[in-house]
């Protein structure tokens, strides 16, 4: 299996604290993967490194075929290469309408001058409307994002991620603050998305992970503790120790 993203023994420390310690991780095209681990296991730092926010002290992160190192790219370049990230806290542009938010995220040339010359087309308007209805915001399309409920903001952000058409989606705790119905909707969406692209879900809600029904990577103290199906890893004594021991 050719890996889409290959994280090769990376390490990073903040002020002597090893947040990531010799971590390796692979994910292929069209794969759904859950990353779990207790607080401080390095989940967010791992995503920060992949998306270019944090530079590792050692190791390499390779992307695509032929493999290209992501470490020389900045956040924007990595995003344009096809890695989308959903933050834990919904971050949408609250001053702007749902349509504006989605339009901004639409896959298009990001060069400032190209953006300056960009004009809405029937195609782009249709796409925005389609995305809005996909995340259930069709009725809210002209409302300001700041006026949406917390759950709606989560959905808007997911919609923006879809608009980017990424090849790899990094999703940080998507279920946080969602109602049960919304969770089920989210699970279905993530599973469906993973049919056409790679999706990494960082979560520590075990029920949610169980519903995703995918391969699970358990992080602990910055490195991989176990990997496999959820049942497999939950039987692992190390995992039990870590989860029950805290």
């Amino acid at each position: 299996m050719s890996a889409l993203l290959e994280v090769d023994s990376i390490s990073v420390s903040f002020d002597g604290f090893k947040a990531i310690d010799n971590l390796s991780f692979n994910i292929g095209d069209a794969e759904l993967r859950a990353v779990i681990g207790p607080n401080g296991a390095g989940k967010t730092t791992f995503m920060d490194i992949v998306t270019g926010k944090t530079r590792p002290d050692a190791g390499d992160v390779k992307w695509g075929t032929p493999p290209k190192s992501l470490l020389k790219m900045n956040e924007a370049q990595i995003a344009r290469a096809g890695i989308g990230r959903k933050f834990q806290r919904p971050t949408v542009f609250e001053d702007q309408t749902v349509a504006d938010n989605l339009t901004m995220a639409l896959k298009a040339n990001r060069n400032p001058f190209a953006v300056l010359g960009w004009r809405p087309s029937v195609d782009s308007t249709g796409k925005v409307a389609e995305l809005a209805s996909e995340v259930g915001l069709a009725a809210q399309i002209t409302r300001k994002a700041g006026e949406l409920s917390h759950g709606q903001k989560q959905w808007l952000e997911i919609g923006m991620l879809l608009a980017q058409e990424p090849r790899l989606l990094l999703v940080d705790e998507p279920a946080a603050g969602m109602t049960l119905a919304e969770r089920e909707q989210t699970t279905a969406l993530l599973v469906r998305l993973a049919q056409t692209r790679a999706v990494v879900v960082v979560e520590h809600d075990m029920d949610f992970v169980r519903r995703l029904n995918c391969k699970v990577t358990v992080l602990h103290q910055g490195s991989v503790l176990a990997e496999g199906s959820l049942d497999h890893v939950t039987r692992n004594p190390d995992v039990i120790e870590v989860y029950l021991g805290r």
């Binding site: 542009f93 001053d95 901004m104 960009w118 923006m160």
Partner: peptide, 29 residues
């Protein structure tokens, strides 16, 4: 237009705009 949208987005949350793939420095310049 969209340019203005991006510019205001940079004002409000420049990190997020980066993760959308926009070269923030270029827009600022």
């Amino acid at each position: 237009g969209k340019f203005g949208s991006v510019v205001r987005a940079i004002r409000d949350d420049e990190t997020r705009v980066r993760f959308l793939g926009y070269p923030v420095e270029g827009f600022k310049l």
